[in-house]
């Protein structure tokens, strides 16, 4: 069955949607757009759609991806156009393409995420000091945080999950560009990194009021970065 890959954004005004809310919103938009999506077999048929990654409540995103399986071939321009008109405000379709059958599932493929994180600072922060402290932070071989799990607080080393981390000062706020590993093994959340940094550096960064925006999702493979829309 043909598969369409759709790129969309989760805007600021809908950043408080949970992943479940987002999935439902998409399923309903697809139905409104009358896209011939395929359904799972069985008593309670589900539309066949898969997402690259869940975006957390409160986090907006410039680029998210979903695959939808189609009952039959449809012109991708038609899908993108109809879907765009059926999207609730704040969720916008950025593009789409038909991907070959052999393309791995998004979840299996996408393994990196980049974020912009902005945090209020209690007192003015010096840019050079910030850079120096980030360099020190990254040179730490192990960054262990307490992670809340179902079994209580567990220690977790987040250092392997950080691919890049830069900071800059803008007025009374501190901004970070942050790259993380995504996926079942060792994925870290942006707030974990920024809060661990605030704690280690002692800088007056209010990590309870972070404003997080996901900038990109991609696949890191053999030293190359592959955009999910760029599959062969």
């Amino acid at each position: 069955m043909p598969r369409a890959r759709i790129e969309f954004s989760k805007g600021d005004r809908v950043r408080f949607l949970s992943h479940l809310d987002l999935m439902k919103a998409m399923a309903r938009a697809i139905r409104r757009a009358e896209i011939p999506i395929a359904f799972s077999e069985g008593f309670n048929p589900h539309p066949k759609m898969n997402f690259a990654s869940a975006v957390a409540v409160g986090v907006s995103s410039e680029s998210e991806y979903m695959d939808i399986e189609l009952q039959h071939e449809v012109d991708i321009k038609e899908i993108v156009g109809r879907l765009a008109r059926a999207m609730p405000p704040g969720l916008d379709i950025k593009g789409g393409r038909i991907v070959p059958d052999s393309t791995p599932a998004l979840m299996a493929e996408v393994n990196r995420a980049a974020y912009h994180v902005s945090a209020p600072a209690g007192e003015p922060v010096n840019g050079e000091e910030l850079s120096a402290k980030i360099a020190h932070f990254l040179s730490t071989p192990e960054i262990v945080i307490e992670k809340r799990t179902k079994k209580g607080l567990r220690p977790k080393d987040i250092r392997p999950g950080i691919t890049h981390f830069r900071g800059s000062v803008s007025g009374e706020r501190v901004g970070f560009l942050l790259g993380t590993v995504l996926g079942s093994d060792g994925s870290v959340r942006p707030e974990e990194v920024v809060c661990a940094f605030a704690k280690q550096s002692g800088l007056p960064i209010d990590c309870d009021s972070l404003y997080i925006r996901r900038i990109s999702l991609y696949t890191e493979k053999d030293g190359k970065q592959i955009d999910p829309m760029d599959v062969n």
Binding site: D12, R13, V14, F16, L17, S18, D21, A25, R28, A29, V57, G58, P88, P89, G90, S209, Y211
Partner: peptide, 20 residues
């Protein structure tokens, strides 16, 4: 509201107001 209240309450989508 989005910056000061919504990040700190349960089910913030209740107050979103831009539904389809």
């Amino acid at each position: 509201i989005g910056n000061t209240i919504l990040p700190k309450v349960i089910k913030p989508v209740r107050y979103e107001g831009n539904e389809w």
